[in-house]
Design a protein around this nucleic acid. Structure first.
Length: 460
DNA sequence: ATGTGC
């Protein structure tokens, strides 16, 4: 018997799950019947893990869910903000990982095969890709002092001090405060200092840059996915070690957590803030380079639509659960019109944009939240979700077939047309089906659909 | 995700 047999249809577009293992913690799965049927059995013990952190109020599972470390990728975890835990697996190693979307007035027919390739060349000339690479932007060769100012001051500080054309109002968080008495654990486990020269670089894995056509208005858009590089990874590694040292019951590092009485509780929250500020500034610095590359090829400006994370814990007020730590691991914040946290911002009236990438041969979407998003802790998915492991993908498909499929679709990949197999379309779920699960549950509506024209991947 | 690994 599968745990799936113990799910119940709430009648509101999501399933609930209550078993001996999950106890009294509400667990909501935002899946269609087909997605529930297809989801890996192995996410069940990871959902149970999520229910076991101290002070849990809600576990919500997004429709792109797949097996992660400790908890599934696609977990929203709400814990009591005053007495509950702050958990590390439900933030992840790549603290602050997230998206940028940018728009233009250039009709998509300007993106000829030649200009798509030129765009990819201009981008890769300006932005370093792949693991271990160092910055080529104005943030290269930063002193440690300047770096610390940036990770404390976030987007607001960066926009002002570095004379950036970006509007910090187009970011999810223009600064996440870091205490003056907290220092990054330089030289400690994880060695976060290796991230200092990486500010302004894309990274590898599923990080990408994509030239797109907005299906609705026919204009060119650009989307980017990147995170906190070696800095965030180093911070996460450091605090995982501290959590384990303190609590021997934490066997796996990815199940680490801190309660308010822990000596490292505030330290970890500061580390998350610093890592997220890095990731946000990283995306803004790269956006500026994207805009330069875009203007070089298409002779018109590229405007920042929005910047938003999908690996983060933030303190928020929820109508059902009060003040909570909302952990989003592979999940995107979804505040609708009128949400208190948007008061006084340009997003107060309609909610902020929600950036949902598909694979690089499938549609991406920009959504807006609906009041019903409270059911999922004001969160939706962060992408299409992986359908098979990287290893399985390399066994299932040949390089020549994958390259040909992209060539036939007219999608220019990197500067050599070689598609990383483990990042290719059939490795991911259908983004349309996943987004349908979101709209069916009344969490959000689709505002824009975007289709890929050119794709840049850090590695495969 | 990551100095792609103990």
């Amino acid at each position: 018997m599968s745990w799936k047999d113990q799910t119940r249809d709430s009648g509101k577009g999501f399933y609930t799950l209550r078993t001996e293992d999950t106890g009294d913690v509400p667990v909501r799965l935002f899946l269609t019947p087909a997605l529930l049927d297809a989801v890996e059995e192995s996410i069940y013990p990871q959902i149970v893990n999520a229910t076991r952190f101290p002070g849990v109020k809600l576990v919500a599972i997004t429709p792109d869910v797949h097996h992660g470390y400790g908890v599934p990728i696609g977990t929203v975890l709400l814990t009591d903000a005053d007495t509950g835990a702050v958990a590390m697996g439900p933030v992840g190693f790549d603290i602050g990982c997230g998206m940028v979307s940018a728009s233009s007035d250039v009709p998509a027919n300007a993106a000829t095969p030649e200009s798509r390739l030129r765009f990819n060349r201009e981008v890769t000339r300006r932005i370093a890709l792949g693991p271990g690479r160092v910055s080529r932007t104005k943030l290269k060769d930063l002193s440690r002092v300047d770096f610390e100012d940036i990770i404390r001051g976030g987007a607001a500080f960066y926009a002002e001090r570095y004379d950036s054309p970006v509007d910090r109002g187009n970011t999810e968080r223009d600064v996440i405060p870091v205490s003056d008495d907290w220092q990054p654990p330089w030289g400690g486990p994880g060695r976060p200092e290796r991230g200092v020269p990486q500010l302004g670089t894309l990274g590898g894995g599923n990080h990408f840059i994509e030239l797109q056509e907005n299906v609705g208005n026919g204009n060119l858009y650009v989307q980017m996915h990147s995170g906190s590089r070696g800095f965030g990874h180093g911070l996460a590694t450091n605090y995982f070690q501290l959590a384990r040292a303190q609590n021997p019951a934490i066997k796996a590092l990815d199940l680490g957590y801190f309660t308010p009485d822990s000596p490292h509780y505030a330290g970890y929250l500061n580390a998350v803030a610093a890592g997220a500020n890095f990731a946000i500034v990283n995306r803004l610095a790269m956006f500026e380079q994207l805009a330069l590359a875009f203007e070089e090829v298409f002779h018109k400006p590229l405007r920042l639509v929005y910047e938003i994370s999908h690996n983060l814990v933030q303190r928020e007020q929820h109508p059902e659960f009060g003040w909570v730590h909302v952990h989003r691991k592979g999940a995107t914040r979804a505040f609708p019109a009128g949400h208190g946290a948007l008061a006084g911002t340009q997003w107060a009236e309609h909610g902020h944009p929600i950036l949902i990438p598909g694979s690089n041969r499938d549609a991406s979407f920009i959504l807006r939240a609906l009041p019903g998003a409270s059911a999922s802790g004001y969160s939706v998915n962060h992408g299409a979700g992986r359908r098979m492991s990287r290893g399985a993908a390399r066994k299932a498909f040949t390089q020549a077939d994958v390259n040909a499929a992209y060539r036939d679709a007219g999608i220019v990949v990197n500067t050599d047309g070689v598609v990383p197999i483990d990042e290719s379309k059939d490795v991911y779920k259908s983004s349309r089906e996943v987004v349908e699960a979101v709209t069916r549950a009344g969490l959000a509506t689709v505002e824009h659909e975007l289709r890929p024209l050119a794709s840049i991947k850090g590695s495969g």
